[in-house]
């Protein structure tokens, strides 16, 4: 009896060793010419870098899972003792016992409506004018491009004061419209540059061929240029969306009432109450960050092509 189990154990451990060896070989797959030592060193460095990149993010998750009485601890584990979802529940649905309502969805709605409108608007504006900059030669073209680049030298904080005064004069403080105005075109100049660079890489022959076949400028733009530049457009949209989505400083100046808050302002109310509720703050952060991060990581394969083909190769 014992011999058979021994044999079975041996077989399975051999199998395991085989699997492990296979995994190691697969994981440390190396190019010709690299010594094993070098390969291991490279992987070790990368793994350490990954840990540094990911661990602080995971800590937020940890804090959000802690029960309220053990928030302050020197524990470094990722899943804490007595993990609980209470913080999430309170953030999402309020706390009837303490008669507190949840503003979480309100903040999300405010952010989402403002930021999606501004990013769609700025991508459309940029896509159209970038086409003109890329395909037409007209007086003032390079002056315009340089001018757009120069606007990027203006610190965002610098325009904030006049914009604030202007928005106050238009009586748009505490309304989504005020923030919409403040966000609307900050991303446009750079987006025009990026998209112009991307359009430049699309051969003009394609359009000329289509025009000979009787297409006009509009159909050329919608049927050739736009589909071919989807990655760049997605990147532009993503950048301007991410920029506005987590923006704090401008929003703080323009929105002062809780009903009008976007989520970055909103989650700060957790950190500014009498008792700082880090647990709820972290829970809210996790719920907001996860969809954005998934979107971001999912599109990371486009990110590289979009970024380098765009602003860079001119």
């Amino acid at each position: 009896m014992s011999t058979t189990t021994d044999a079975a154990n041996k077989v399975s451990s051999a199998k395991q060793a085989n699997v492990v060896a296979h995994f190691i070989r697969w994981f440390f797959y190396r190019a010709r010419g690299d010594s094993p030592f070098k390969t291991i060193l490279i992987h070790a460095t990368l793994i350490v870098a990954c840990i540094i990149a990911v661990y602080p993010v995971l800590r937020v998750v940890t804090i959000s899972l802690r029960p309220n009485d053990t928030l302050l601890t020197t524990d470094l584990r990722i899943i804490p003792e007595n993990a609980t979802l209470d913080n999430y529940k309170e953030v999402l649905f309020g706390n009837p016992e303490r008669n507190r309502k949840s503003d979480f969805f309100l903040w999300l709605w405010n952010s989402l409506s403002i930021v999606s409108i501004t990013s769609v608007l700025s991508v459309i504006l940029a896509a159209i004018s970038a086409y003109a900059f890329s395909r037409f030669k007209f007086p003032g073209r390079s002056a315009g491009l340089i001018f757009l680049l120069t606007t990027q030298m203006i610190p965002a904080g610098m325009l904030l004061l006049p914009l604030f005064i202007m928005i106050a004069k238009l009586k748009m403080i505490n309304t989504p419209l005020g923030l919409l105005i403040a966000y609307a075109v900050t991303a446009v100049p750079l987006t025009i540059w990026t998209l112009k660079g991307y359009y430049d890489t699309i051969p003009v022959d394609l359009e000329e061929a289509a025009m000979i076949d009787g297409a006009n400028r509009f159909t050329v733009f919608t049927n050739i240029i736009l589909p071919l530049s989807t990655p760049a457009l997605a990147i532009a949209f993503l950048f301007s969306f991410m920029g506005g989505w987590s923006e704090y400083l401008v929003a703080r100046v323009i929105l002062q009432k809780n009903e009008a808050f976007t989520w970055p302002l909103g989650i700060f109310t957790y950190a500014q109450q009498f008792t700082v509720s880090w647990g709820q703050f972290s829970a809210a952060s996790v719920m907001i960050a996860i969809p954005v991060m998934i979107l971001f990581l999912y599109s990371s394969k486009w990110l590289i092509s979009g970024l380098t083909l765009g602003s860079v190769k001119g």
Binding site: Y29, I42, S246, Y248, P264, I267, I288, A289, V292, F296
Partner: peptide, 28 residues
């Protein structure tokens, strides 16, 4: 360089960029 797990590394390494700045700053 040719690596089987390049995509995984890349995904993990862009975490600090992907997380909204406000949250990252507060967490730090």
């Amino acid at each position: 360089r040719p690596m089987k797990v390049q995509g995984l590394y890349r995904t993990l390494l862009v975490f600090p960029w992907a997380i909204p700045t406000t949250i990252a700053a507060m967490a730090l």
